[in-house]
Amino acid sequence: MNAEAEGTVYPEVEFVVDPERVAAFRDLFGIDHGVPPTFVTAAEFAALPTVLTDPALAIDFTRVVHGSQEYEYHRPPRVGETLRVRARIDSIRHRGGTGFMTIAMDLVDADGRPVCSVRSQMLERGLPT
């Protein structure tokens, strides 16, 4: 991955909190009501392909593993609402042949108010020697 991509801000994308998708998520995790806390992962995947295929970032996704994940909720998402997802590359570091990238995302509602802040660390494993 290219460290010069640090700070890149990606175009906002929309994500609908679809009732059927929420229900499928609940069923998978045995949660009987509301929106499961990690349902917002689906919103991240509305924005993430654009980041991971950015030629300026030049990340080899076949070597990428997930290092850590943080969600800070400002309020629970509401079923049926449309969220806007804003992604940026917060930091890129290299250490011992491994690349460490932190992606930050803000999920905001139709009025622009924050719903969830996301930090996600991806590791690009070094090439075999």
Partner: peptide, 23 residues
């Protein structure tokens, strides 16, 4: 992590009261 969140949700009784979660 979704499974971890399910454990926290089951304990708390409602997904809406979870203010943050990290792994």
């Amino acid at each position: 992590m979704g499974h971890m969140a399910a454990a926290v949700t089951a304990w708390a009784g409602d997904p809406g009261v979870v203010g943050s979660i990290a792994a």
